[in-house]
Structures are given as C-alpha cells and as structure tokens.
C-alpha cells in the first residue's frame, strides 16, 4: 500500500500559520511524525491562503527535504506551482495531480518524464466528474493511451477515479470497487489505483471508521494507493491486515511489526 500522507496541507491551521510566518518547526514535526507512521509519500499542499503559492511550495519542500528523506507528493491544481516544486526536488517525487483531458495529460506527462516523477491522473475532464463506471473507465483508458504515447512508464501512473464523499452521493463508493478491478486489468503492468480517502468521509460523524472500512474493502478489489491520514494507526494497521488477507505479504505472527518497518 502506498500511503500518501495528507497532513502538510495549508487547509490545516498549523501549516497555514507555519507558511505565513516561515516557521519550519511545525512542518518538520509533521514530516517526522508522518514518516515514522509509515508514509510512502508526504503530500505537500500550500492551501489557498498564501499570495505566493509557488514560493510557499518551494519553501515547504526544502524544509521537508532538510528533515526527512521520504519522497514528496506535490499537491496543487496550478501547473506553475507544480513546476516550482519540481525545481527543488531532490528525491523521488509524485505529482498530485493531472486531469484526464488530453492537453492536460500531455503537459503533465511531459514534465513528469523530465523529472522522473510519478503522476496521479484523475478520471475527470472539462465535462466534469463522471458519475458512472463506464465514463470513468473511458477516461482511464485515455490516460493509459497517453502514457503509452509519451513512453511514460505505467508503473508511475496513479489513476484516481475521484471518490465522492459518502454524504454527498451514497451510490458512488460501491462503484469504485468495480473500477479498481477494471484498472488492474487495463494494462501489464497496470497503473496504480488511488483515492483521496479523507475526502470520502469528510463531514461525517464516523470519519475514521468509514475511511478504514472503505480502505480495507478497496484493497480487496485492487486499491493500492491513497491520500490518507497516516497518523491514524488503526487505519494503517487495517491496511496492512487487508493486504495480509489478500496474500500480498507473507504472514507471520508479528506481521504488523514487520510491515510497519
């Protein structure tokens, strides 16, 4: 399971304050805590409050890279902010994210290749976010075609079928499982299957329980990456356990200890 740790995001007050005051302390702490919790990537999102998002992105990345070696996920909808982030990256990196329009994919895959970066591609385009399986798969196919056209490794592509919050459209989560299954068979090797997990349960009373159950069900259908709260230990352990049940790791009595490392 590739866990993309979501906490370094300007939507959170402590991160917003840190960006505003250029105070690295909170950022360093979050980088360390999330790394120790087992994060595969540290997502970095500057939020909406800063007037200079590109500068803030560079500053955050530099602070994190000074603290830990964990790969970074540059999270922005603005291409110039992504580019600014890439310009200071030292290690492995993931771009979060590109939409599924051909011209967007051309732009993002070109730069991803240039920086040897991985890329999350959303199954949405200028027509909006599809509500059904078929249209999402149509965009997923186009993403894979584009990757082949760009000679961009499919193992670096993360397809995100855009999971709706459960309290917005309750029909949506169940559709995801079919999509994960289909994406797994779209190519060999297949692209990764990613979701924004906290988004799914936001605003609910049982936020953590919903996230945990969706994640474990998703893993059983082939979900293998998520932007998530890695500091939720029960969530992380549930993911490991789901993978053990799906025979993705060799079982041992201390499997939690082994997989947490």
């Amino acid at each position: 399971m590739l866990s993309i740790a979501e906490r370094i995001n300007g939507m959170f007050k402590d991160v917003r304050e840190a960006i505003k005051n250029k105070d690295p302390k909170a950022i360093r702490e979050l980088a360390i805590k999330q790394t120790e919790a087992g994060a595969s990537f540290l997502d970095v999102n500057v939020g909406t409050a800063t007037a200079d998002p590109a500068g803030a992105m560079k500053w955050l990345i530099e602070v994190i890279q000074d603290t830990v070696k964990t790969p970074i996920a540059i999270d922005s909808q603005k291409f110039d902010v992504v580019k600014a982030g890439l310009s200071v990256i030292k290690n492995e990196v993931l771009i979060n994210s590109s939409k599924g329009d051909p011209e967007e994919l051309d732009k993002y895959m070109t730069i991803a290749k240039e920086y040897n970066a991985s890329l999350i591609c959303l199954t949405m385009d200028k027509c909006g976010i599809p509500q059904d399986v078929e249209r999402r798969m149509e965009i997923a196919m186009k993403i894979v075609e584009k990757a082949v056209e760009h000679e961009y490794e499919l193992s670096k592509v993360y397809i995100d079928p855009v999971l709706f919050p459960i309290n917005v459209d309750q029909k949506q989560p169940a559709l995801m499982f079919d999509i994960f299954n289909q994406i797994k068979m779209i190519s060999d090797p297949p692209p990764h299957r990613n979701v924004g997990l906290s988004n799914f349960s936001q605003g609910t009373k049982e936020k953590r329980l919903l996230a945990r159950i969706f994640l474990t069900m998703g893993i059983s259908y082939g979900l293998d990456a998520a932007v998530m709260d890695v500091l939720d230990k029960e969530l992380m352990d549930a993911a490991i356990t789901a993978e053990i049940i799906m025979n993705q790791h060799v079982y041992s009595d201390s499997y939690l200890t082994a997989c947490r490392k």
């Binding site: 041992s252 009595d253 201390s254």
Partner: peptide, 11 residues
C-alpha cells in the same frame, strides 16, 4: 513453514 520462517527473522 514460511510463516514461522518470517517470524524467527523478525524475532
């Protein structure tokens, strides 16, 4: 026993 094999390595 592969499971015990892994366990002894962890121990």
């Amino acid at each position: 026993d592969i499971n015990i094999g892994k366990q002894i390595n962890i121990l």
